[in-house]
Design a protein around this nucleic acid. Structure first.
Lengths: 212, 212
DNA sequence: CCGGCGTCTAAGCGCTTGCTCACCCTCCGG
DNA sequence: CCGGAGGGTGAGCAAGCGCTTAGACGCCGG
């Protein structure tokens, strides 16, 4: 068991990675990178977790860094997709911001192992790959900033500093990957709910009315 | 220049580290760890930055890990001190929470190089040292939780989930160390001010009145 | 039955790592 | 003027690193 809990719940990640051995190696790498960090993880450790010899890794990936790049790319694509889906939804700006934070945080909590690698091992990427990922992050930033802008324009939000608040909101959500499950009384859904509420207060769209 | 900006402003950190050569090595280690991460930093790199030979490091420190431990310990002591000072201050719970967030964030922004090492390289510590540091973090958590509890009891704050909100507040502040200065239009003071405002909104102590 | 391809392994190469050791300065009390 | 202590160096060791190579396996169309 152990790693089973990560893939529980019917959600099957990494389905886009084939063949099977390549996926097993990638999943093993995610676990190892999340646990010890990229630089502290050896290729022997990754191969061992996948039940293979060290050399097997190089049949499917050219370098250890390519593994990290693949993980980072897939993860960022997923995270951006989650944000964009929520942003394109119906309702007021407050509705969309709440949905975005709720689903974004839910993903970071439920897949905190992956998210930790994706969000905190950026500097281990080769410069070219790093630039590519940074571009995706800028898109995430733009999505959130747009919702905030909409809310301000509609008079729903009171936000003096939209770029700064955007940064804070994303920072808050992303950092969930770092601390989540440290003991784990909360479910990912509960954290998402809590954070959606906190963020809506931050932007002054308080459903904080005492009766709510 | 370069590293000079870090120590600018009259604040002289690491004054508790003697002799001089030991301090130079420690400052070099902070820079290197912040830039590349603990595991990606070599002892040769640290010694080189300090203008010494690789062997010189081992006159003042037993291992590379001891360097990280010293940095982490001093940094956490300082961070906790900042929080406790603000918490012990005068005024309402809102006043104290605002002061705590403002000064805590200010430190994380102004000394983001140090803060990055202190906050994000925890897992590289030996288990015994890690436990020691985790203990300090629990104290930081307790300080913030107490202010929130006070505010709720006094009817100043509306916080349904005090432990969860405490976690979120600290997470938000700490993560400043990760992104700060990525381009740097904002000063540390401005970020502290912005964050104090955001956090006060989060707890429903809105000075969000338009005229404020 | 075969031959080629994709997959995997055992062994190991070249290099870097954290750390050590033998030795050398410089400073300073007696 | 000396001798010892503490701060420093150049060279280098054992271990571990990312990665490669030579060869063996199972599978499958002809």
């Amino acid at each position: 068991m152990g790693s089973a809990e990560e893939t529980a719940g019917g959600y099957r990640p990494w389905s886009e990675v084939t063949p099977d051995a390549a996926r097993r190696l990638l999943v093993a790498a995610v676990e190892a990178f999340a646990e010890r960090g990229y630089h502290a993880t050896t290729t022997r450790d990754i191969a061992g977790r996948a039940g293979m010899s060290p050399a097997a890794l190089y049949i499917h990936y050219k370098t250890k860094e390519e593994l990290l790049h693949r993980i980072s790319r897939i993860g960022h694509d997923k995270a951006l997709d989650i944000l964009e889906t929520a942003a394109a939804g119906p309702g007021t700006a407050a509705d969309r911001l709440g949905a975005a934070v709720r689903s974004f945080v839910l993903w970071h909590a439920a897949h905190h192992t992956t998210a930790r690698v994706v969000q905190y091992e950026l500097d281990a990427l080769a410069p070219e790959h790093r630039d590519e990922i940074v571009q995706l992050r800028r898109q995430s930033d733009a999505v959130v900033r747009r919702i905030l802008g909409d809310g301000v324009a509609a008079g729903e939000f009171h936000v003096p500093d939209v770029p700064g608040t955007t940064l804070a909101v994303l920072s808050l959500c992303i950092d969930v990957a770092r601390w989540f499950n440290a003991a784990g009384r909360r479910t990912p859904e509960e954290v998402g709910e809590l954070y959606a509420d906190l963020v809506l207060r931050m932007v002054g769209a308080a459903r904080a009315a005492p009766g709510a």
